[in-house]
Each structure stands twice: as structure tokens, then as C-alpha cells.
């Protein structure tokens, strides 16, 4: 059973339907006690980082997520749900995150090394560069295109957590992982076949049903 963490800031509908298509049992809960016994969790997220951290706290999920990570329960953060797992973000002033991955979230500068400007958000289909193909999450996931839409990006010195990146004027961390905690900057449920395969790998390979 997968628990979808509902703190009021995710596109839960599309994620839920994607799990239904994969025939994965799930439940959605807006308080930890409603989904405390699940085998794995999905942390979705759309919106602004400070609002999301506040909402996570209001719903009582901050200690819950940290506890589950300590216990080694698989968790998959999507989009903003991935960014929340890092130490902090500069979105809307400096805001503290969950600190479960080393690194911070910064805005795309919008200007490259040569001084020419580029468009922000990073929006559209971009190719994955896979760095750790042996990870279970990446079973049969190739250097495919996935759908990104974000203005803030992960900055980290810890290359060992980068399962895959993508190039958009800088190296964009696309799939992150350490142990049973994994995440993607893009929406797997909106990224065609490779995205669905990632979700399936998480739900059926990483999570023991």
C-alpha cells in the first residue's frame, strides 16, 4: 500500500490515477495517522517552497517524514516534493527544508556563463543523463525525454545522490536518491512511458508490497 501525502499542495488527482493505471493500491491522507501503516510514500508538490513547508508542518507531516526515512521506508518526492527534501531554498527568502538530502534550492540564474540570457522556467521535454543505471528505481529507464517545469533547481556538491541529470544551461539534478529516499524534479505522471516506468519501479521494486 502506497500512502500519498496530502498537505494541500499537490496535483493528487494525476498521481492517484497514474497509480490506478499501474494497478498499485494506495491511499491519500491529510494527517500522518491516516496513512501511518503504508509500505511506501509519495510526496507530491506544486507551488511555492515556503507555503509548502508551512503546510507540511500544519498537517503534522514534518516529524512523520523524517521518522519514516530513518526507518528506511521508501519515499518518492515529486517536483516541489523533491525540493522540500533538501536543506533549504532561496524561494521567497531563505526557507529551511526537511534536510534529508544535502544541498540547497536556488533560482535558475536566467543568464549563462557567456552572459546570454535564457528562458525561465525550464519548461518542456528534456533528455535524462543517467549516472547510476544500476539503481532499482531506474530499471529499464533509458536516456529518455521527461517533462520538466520549474524555476528553482537543486544545487549540491554530493554527486553520489545524482541518479540522473538533464542539461538546461547548467546541470539540472533530475532524479535524486539515497537509500530508500528517492525523488525527481519532473513529474513522472506527466512524462509518458519513462515516467510511468519510474513510478512502477518505485511502487513495485523499491516498495515491498
Amino acid at each position: 500500500m502506497i500512502g500519498i501525502i496530502d498537505y494541500g499542495m499537490g496535483n493528487l488527482f494525476s498521481v492517484s490515477k497514474a497509480l490506478e493505471r499501474l494497478d498499485v493500491p494506495y491511499k491519500v491522507g491529510d494527517r500522518p495517522e491516516k496513512i501511518s501503516e503504508c509500505d511506501g510514500y509519495i510526496l507530491p508538490g506544486v507551488g511555492a517552497f515556503p507555503d509548502a513547508m508551512k503546510a507540511l508542518g500544519d498537517h503534522g507531516f514534518i516529524p512523520f517524514i523524517k521518522e519514516k526515512v530513518n526507518e528506511g521506508v521508501p519515499i518518492y518526492g515529486i517536483c516541489l516534493g523533491m525540493q522540500l527534501l533538501f536543506e533549504s531554498s532561496e524561494e521567497g527568502g531563505q526557507t529551511e527544508g526537511l534536510g534529508l538530502f544535502p544541498g540547497t534550492i536556488v533560482k535558475f540564474p536566467g543568464v549563462d556563463e557567456n552572459g546570454s540570457s535564457y528562458k525561465v522556467p525550464h519548461m518542456g521535454w528534456n533528455r535524462l543523463n543517467i549516472h547510476q543505471p544500476d539503481k532499482g528505481l531506474l530499471n529499464e529507464v533509458g536516456e529518455d525525454f521527461v517533462y520538466f517545469v520549474h524555476s528553482f533547481v537543486v544545487q549540491t556538491d554530493h554527486r553520489e545522490i545524482l541518479y540522473a541529470t538533464s542539461d538546461y544551461h547548467l546541470e539540472v539534478p533530475a532524479i535524486i536518491g539515497r537509500g530508500n529516499l528517492v525523488a525527481s524534479q519532473f513529474h513522472p505522471e506527466k512524462s509518458g512511458e519513462p515516467g510511468m516506468r519510474l513510478l512502477e519501479n518505485f511502487c513495485k521494486v523499491m516498495v515491498k508490497q
Binding site: F13, H187, S191
Partner: peptide, 11 residues
């Protein structure tokens, strides 16, 4: 909208 979102994995 609901049906499209239920059945497709593209934006």
C-alpha cells in the same frame, strides 16, 4: 478534464 488526466501521462 478528469478523463484525460485519468488516462494520459502527458501534460
Amino acid at each position: 478534464v478528469r478523463s484525460v488526466a485519468s488516462e494520459l501521462a502527458i501534460p
